[in-house]
Design a protein around this nucleic acid. Sequence first.
RNA 1: GCCGCUGUGGUGAAAUGGUAGACACGGGGGACUUAAAAUCCCCUGCCCCUUACCGGGCAUGCUGGUUCGAUUCCAGCCGGCGGCACCA
Length: 864
Amino acid sequence: MSQEFDPSTIEAKWQKKWDEAKIYETDLKKAKNPFYSLVMFPYPSGDKLHVGHWYNFAPADSFARYMRMKGNDVMEPMGFDAFGLPAENYAIKSGIPPEKSTSSNVQTMVKQLKRMGCMYDWSKMVNTSSPEYYRWTQWLFLKMYEHKLAYKKEASVNFCSKCQTVLANEQAQDGTCERCGTEVAQKSLAQWFWKITDYAERLLQGLDDLDWPEKTKLMQRNWIGRSEGAEITFDLVGHTEKLTVFTTRPDTLFGATYMVLAPEHPLVEKITPKDHKGVVQAYREQVAKKTEMERTDLAKVKTGEPTGAFAVNPATGEQIPIWIADYVLMTYGTGAIMAVPAHDERDFDFATSHQLDVKCVVDPDIQTPHFSTYIYQNPALAKTSGQSLDKGENIEWNTQCRQNVLEGTRCWTGPGKAISSDFLNSMGVEEAKKRMIAWLEDEGRGRARTTFRLRDWLVSRQRYWGAPIPIVYDPEGNPHPIPEKHLPWLLPTDVAFKPTGKSPLTESKEFIERTEKIFGKGWMPEFDTMDTFVCSSFYYLMYLSSDGFGMQAPPFSGSKEQEKQEKNHPIDPHVERTWMPVSMYIGGPEHACMHLIYARFVMMALKDFGFVSHEEPFKKLVHQGLITNNGAKMSKSKGNVVSPDSFIERHGSDVFRMYLMFMGPFTEGGDWSDTGIKGIDRFVKRIYALCTDKVNKKVDQPNVLAALHRTIKKVTEDIEALKFNTAISALMEFLNLAEEEGGVTQKTAQTLTLLLAPIAPHLAEELWGSLKGPSFAKATEGKKGFVIEQKWPSFDPKLTKESTLMIAIQVNGKVRGEIEVAADASKDDVLLKAKAHPNVQKFLEGKKLKKEIYVKGRLVSLVV
RNA sequence: GCCGCUGUGGUGAAAUGGUAGACACGGGGGACUUAAAAUCCCCUGCCCCUUACCGGGCAUGCUGGUUCGAUUCCAGCCGGCGGCACCA
């Protein structure tokens, strides 16, 4: 009877049987309790699957298996985010076309993924680089264009000279290229943008109802960066043009003592008088040469130059100088500010280093200690009471204020009342803001306005390996959308992969000939391709589109009209209503402000276009932890990528995935180490032995039965909370007990097998096969034979309780003894017994008992 | 600088107001074996008392607070990780 447990033959055997029985293929149209389990799809890299993938995918699969046993119709798809830079870079190096290397990587990874034994429904696999898929990426672009959410504009973009491509802000975050680390330069190009900013408010509001990690929601909120304030228009001295600024503190308008334009601001040219042109031009050139790094360095002294022009403060009527400085960004607000140095730290720094006026218009609250200190140490301010100070006093004042800053006290924020501000005087900040906005509106000099930090999504890429943008240009250069009947607008193949700084598609003769053939002589295609984040912004819908979408053509069905409809509508409305939003989405936190925001935007847009019924794509989101190696993120360049393959070969998929889950909490990750995998290996062998050789009991002892029910309870609760590590340790504890008892009943072994099914599917299937017995097999012939098709065991709360309990006894907070009592013993009995404990008596002797506490089933606490 | 998370044995960790260190790795000792591997049994936070038993003290980054009782709650500080970073 006793057999060697050999994972590789057992796992291969069941994978084959599962595959043949198609038990993991989901009929989307018949589902009653849909549960859509999704993991962020991988990039088909030449590095193949690494332990990080397993760490993400295996627990996701375990949870999905549990949900299926709980009676849900589970769909767990898998696919590939296949467009992107690495394949193209590899092509540049090796000359092997990206579609070749990608397809071979996909093949390898599919093989590896199948070896994991997850519930993937391979009939629904997608590959974003296949024409069947990118046809819809292009379709999405056309819909965006049709609804005026796609537009083209000349823009200064991040350009990496090494990769020869434009980068999104998110891909050039530290002023260096995300991929190669080269410093990012600025370059002006005509680019396609998607108007995600139109959805800023909805993207922000929608977060409130999502079951996502708070941390991720916070990151998105900050990324969207909503702020309320006002737009104020200033007249210019000697010019008809006006200067509009955005401020969150319109209440401080009386304290605006100068203005600042971003160096790139278009008005600079117009307003700078001749005698300042030289200096201004030199400054602008100097700024243009700076890298993003240098420009955003907070430690540096803020630089700037006066333009020589003046604006009129609409509140005071005073003429105030206009400066240019690179601490003002062209990309936020209006690219210009009114500077209120008394109440803004940055303006204060600038005013200090350029000897500009500081005028206090919010009286700091004297009740606040650090403000009062400041006030009394500055007789100059007390004396002038908010009046603009003359230069000599100003510097002294600034020095003192600077000192306050260094000591961590501030003089420009905090509660206070408006002073020296005419009609605002004595109002609080919030009241004064409202009053000032009302005044500006009455005067026609401004209005309330909300701005966002979120920028429009730059989707153009000057790369080869992406979905071509479905746009053609007439001989005059005007853009036209490519009619849907020409989709997929195929990516040409007659292209060499030498970076030239131009889009690689410009080299394709076929591409240009095709365009002229269809649209006419002199017509040119758009040579840019789309950002890969476009491909991944809707893939969760593509899994739901007609069976086999992506890898195979959609099946022919229904009337010609119907077929036409289906072809032009990627998502079956019924299926979408049933299956969206995704029930559980698992992936890394690094996508918080990229993929996870783009996908939400695209879903919202598709809803507005009428193609889907839901606004949010992912109802529940969980981030798995990061697995590092020697403390560093695994990457090919560091050469510290750990491959799971040798572990799978030696221990099998079950042991490896269980080991990853046992390492620690799923959301925390940790540093990779294989010490300890042995422990799981032993566990698997022991549980196999128990459930094959030691099913020798007729009845369960009460303590075993109680332990079993406690184990069911614990494993159920832990899996629901994604605490796989403690679920496994609960199973180990039960195993230890069962071995001590010398064996188990068939029923107990079956229950144990069911509990094991989500986390060690092959082992559980093998045990289930041997345990269910001949009569069971007959009853279930042809259906419900696999362990995954069984019902998840339930527990009896009455049975989880032991008949006797161990109660700890504390005297003054320290444990002095332990007694055994019946579970239903009364408080008085327990206290009496506790006080009689010899060691406890030692500590009670000669002392007065002040208080006695009994925590039921736990402990007795005596205070003397 | 701001925001968020985090700190427990030799190691991965458990316990989220109730006996700190479950479960596992590693280590030590023993059994089996010609031997090794595998397997099984015992011990394993630190210190003290004791021949042994029975005991006692200290311990969850640091300093305080709340509580009969704090790894858990509160305040301040220190270290690690992540995000944002001139957003007016």
